[in-house]
């Protein structure tokens, strides 16, 4: 692989864009196709298919074997609430290569001392979320269990294609949340996208254990969806 091509691939990733490298296994010939150029490529249908699946693959076309190195944009997580669980979550999420943004308007919680080395926005979710670009590679983790802060974030997420929406709070808290969102015009199909109480049920109690259960649920949501379409 030419260094220039490797560099472009890394650049596309840094810019959060999908890209595919096509390698002719017999000749070693290679080309990089950015997400916007897929439609013009001779292998367009195969590129589309494997990008949707989110998996690299060996394919055949016109009797030749090509390897598709599929690079999806990095997953992004927006955490609402600069709380104790978030402090436990962030180092674990970094291990999984997730891009993280923490949003909390409460200046007592959202301090750089408590959240070093992470994008921390001390703002109300309704003010800042539209600029964060919720797409199918985005997860929302709502952890304040304060409706004034969590609800606007959940509403933004429900109106997007994001692959995961998790909300902290007991079943009772969630019942009241469902009531509010129903009044706001959402239907059951929308509301069933919200995972609440957040996290896989592993009996987690400490903030770190809850973080593990949330992270496992995010991985499952992302991977299972693609496994289903494979």
């Amino acid at each position: 692989m030419k260094l220039e091509m490797l560099s472009r691939l890394n650049g596309e990733r840094a810019a959060r864009r999908a890209a595919i490298i096509i390698t002719d296994i017999q000749s070693g010939e290679q080309r990089l196709v950015g997400q916007d150029a897929i439609a013009q490529d001779p292998l367009a249908p195969l590129l589309d298919l494997h990008l949707t699946r989110g998996k690299s693959a060996l394919v055949e076309h016109d009797g030749r074997q090509f390897f598709l190195t599929v690079q999806e944009p990095p997953l992004k997580v927006v955490i609402i609430g600069a709380v104790h669980i978030s402090q436990a979550l962030i180092p674990m999420m970094k291990q999984l290569d997730l891009s993280i943004t923490v949003v909390d308007p409460r200046t007592a919680f959202a301090t750089p001392d408590r959240f070093p080395d992470v994008s921390l926005l001390t703002m109300w979710p309704d003010a800042v979320l539209p600029s964060l670009g919720f797409d199918r590679y985005t997860a929302l983790v709502a952890l304040t269990h304060d409706p004034k802060i969590d609800d606007p974030a959940i509403i933004t997420a429900l109106r997007s294609q994001c692959f995961y929406i998790g909300a902290l709070g007991s079943r009772k808290t969630h019942e009241r949340r469902i009531e509010r969102l129903t009044n706001a015009g959402f239907i059951e199909a929308d509301l069933s996208r919200i995972r609440a109480p957040i996290g896989l049920d592993i009996g987690a109690t400490s903030p770190a254990e809850i973080a593990v259960s949330i992270l496992a649920e995010i991985v499952a949501a992302f991977r299972n969806e693609r496994r289903g379409s494979a």
Binding site: L6, R13, G54, P74, D97, R223
Partner: peptide, 10 residues
């Protein structure tokens, strides 16, 4: 992608 494979490419 949920992996650090791309860090390897970097």
């Amino acid at each position: 992608m949920l992996s650090t494979d791309t860090d390897v490419l970097k």
